Amino acid sequence: MTPEHAALIDGEPLPRERVDSFLDRRPFRGAGLYQSAAPPRGATSHDEPAPARRQTEAPSVARQRRRWATQVLVTDELARRACADRGLKVPEEVSPAKTLTLAESDVADLGSIVAAALAHSPAARTLLAALESEQTVPETAVRDYYARNQDRFLTPEALRRGVTPFDGASPDDVLPYDQVREGIERELHRAAGRQAFFGWLDQARSGVVYSHGHEHPGDPSHPDHEHRH
């Protein structure tokens, strides 16, 4: 008998119909690197209704898309609970988009599942913002980043001359630390918040039990697994 739930989250069911509804209401638009950007390999970036596309999908692709969607919804549910535990107010989407669009940069930095969860879930975005606000970036880390990444801070004049930090760039070829410090700190702060989100998610998912056909897309226990996140 096929279970009615896609997963049990700390013993509470995530209904299969919620996954079905997600797949039906949100056709997927890729982000250029589509195989990494969203549902697994084989799904295409088109605007036609989801049912029409799914008729042409290979069974393995359809299974992976379902597993992928389950992960997005599990992340959303876990984030809702985490926000409730923290007393965080989650804004409601007045008119949620019907097409899930992912930026290539987010996919590269976050992985497709986390990028899609943040695109789909106000709770996940709220939790990420809270975790980011809790992070601190030491001055030593900012200075170390500046020292190790001089190629990112060459002046426009140095770039026009083809100067690199590896072939005799002078101090005048590099933007002053005080001029770029704020941007570096902002970037490191954002990265620390995302790392905290990854750590939270890994721990939160430990209590999730998936039904057959809804396992993580990268779970090596099923034959269609893909090592993508």
Rank of each mutant, 00 (worst) to 15 (best):
V180P: 05
E215S: 04
T155L: 07
R25V: 14
S112G: 10
P51D: 09
A123P: 04
E226F: 07
P176V: 09
E12C: 07
V163E: 04
S133C: 02
Y145G: 00
L23C: 04
R125C: 06
S105P: 01
D151F: 03
A7V: 07
D224L: 00
E182N: 09
A196F: 04
S45A: 02
F153P: 10
D202H: 11
K89A: 15
P27Y: 09
T155K: 03
A103S: 13
D202L: 14
A147R: 15
A117Q: 03
L188P: 02
E48M: 10
P91T: 01
A196Q: 05
A7I: 08
P13T: 10
E4V: 10
P51K: 01
Y177S: 01
G87I: 05
G11F: 01
A115N: 07
R190H: 11
E182A: 08
D47E: 10
D106G: 11
H225E: 02
A147E: 09
L14Y: 11
R190C: 02
E139M: 01
P3L: 14
R66H: 09
D202W: 10
T2A: 13
C83L: 01
A103H: 08
L78F: 08
N149E: 00
D151Y: 14
R160N: 06
R29D: 06
S45W: 03
E93D: 09
D10F: 09
I9A: 04
L78K: 11
Q35G: 08
L118G: 09
R18S: 12
A108L: 14
H120P: 02
P122K: 09
R41V: 14
T99D: 13
Q195D: 14
R41K: 08
R25E: 15
Q135D: 05
A115Q: 01
P122Y: 07
A7C: 06
V72C: 11
A108R: 15
T56N: 05
R26H: 09
P220F: 07
A103M: 13
G207T: 14
S133F: 02
F28V: 05
L201T: 02
R190T: 03
D144R: 08
V107D: 05
A147V: 09
A116Y: 07
L118D: 00
S170N: 11
S95Q: 10
S170K: 15
P49H: 12
S133P: 02
T70L: 07
A108C: 10
T56V: 12
V74H: 13
V90Y: 11
V163S: 04
T99V: 15
T101V: 14
V137Q: 00
T136M: 04
P122I: 08
A97S: 13
P59Q: 07
A119E: 12
R181E: 03
R65A: 11
A147D: 12
G11N: 07
V174I: 15
L23R: 15
E17H: 12
V61E: 06
L33K: 04
A84R: 08
G162I: 03
F197Y: 09
D47S: 14
A97P: 12
E48L: 15
E12M: 06
H229S: 03
S60Q: 13
A124I: 00
R29C: 14
